[in-house]
């Protein structure tokens, strides 16, 4: 299989200006939502616990606690419906996948803030 040619086809659909964010960051994902004819932008904010895949298949998982229940959303990184990703707080991590957060509740889900260059402190 000639992946170089597949990459050429994919590359037209890839976004070129994906904002920088890392595993452990708390991000606001701006997502276009269609309700009938109307279109609005919904914001889902939470901790980035995983980034997966390559090329057009790359996704990232955002986890947050809603009304005491853990909610995870998997976003395709290159989806045209995602208009913006804003990192609001960086978290200190030692691994690439933060699945251990699923077993945690309350204060222990919060990661220690890490001041890296891209951090936007609100």
């Amino acid at each position: 299989m000639n992946t170089a040619l597949l990459d050429k086809v994919e590359s037209k659909c890839l976004k070129k200006d994906i904002p920088h964010f890392e595993i452990g960051d708390i991000v606001d994902v701006h997502c276009r939502i269609k309700e009938g004819e109307k279109e609005r932008i919904g914001i889902f904010s939470g901790t980035v616990i995983a980034r997966k895949g390559r090329g057009i298949n790359s996704t990232f998982t955002v986890r947050r606690i809603v009304a005491g229940e853990g909610v995870e959303r998997i976003f395709p990184l290159h989806s045209p419906n995602i208009t913006d990703i804003k990192a609001t707080r960086s978290g200190k991590t030692r691994r690439a996948k933060l699945y251990y957060l699923r077993e945690r509740t309350g204060k222990s889900t919060k990661l220690v803030q890490e001041h890296s260059e891209h951090t936007v402190v609100s």
Binding site: E10, I56, S79, N81
Partner: peptide, 13 residues
């Protein structure tokens, strides 16, 4: 060559 995914003009995958 192989299979992949693309977004079309209506932004469907």
């Amino acid at each position: 060559v192989g299979m992949t995914q693309v977004y079309d003009e209506k932004e469907r995958l």
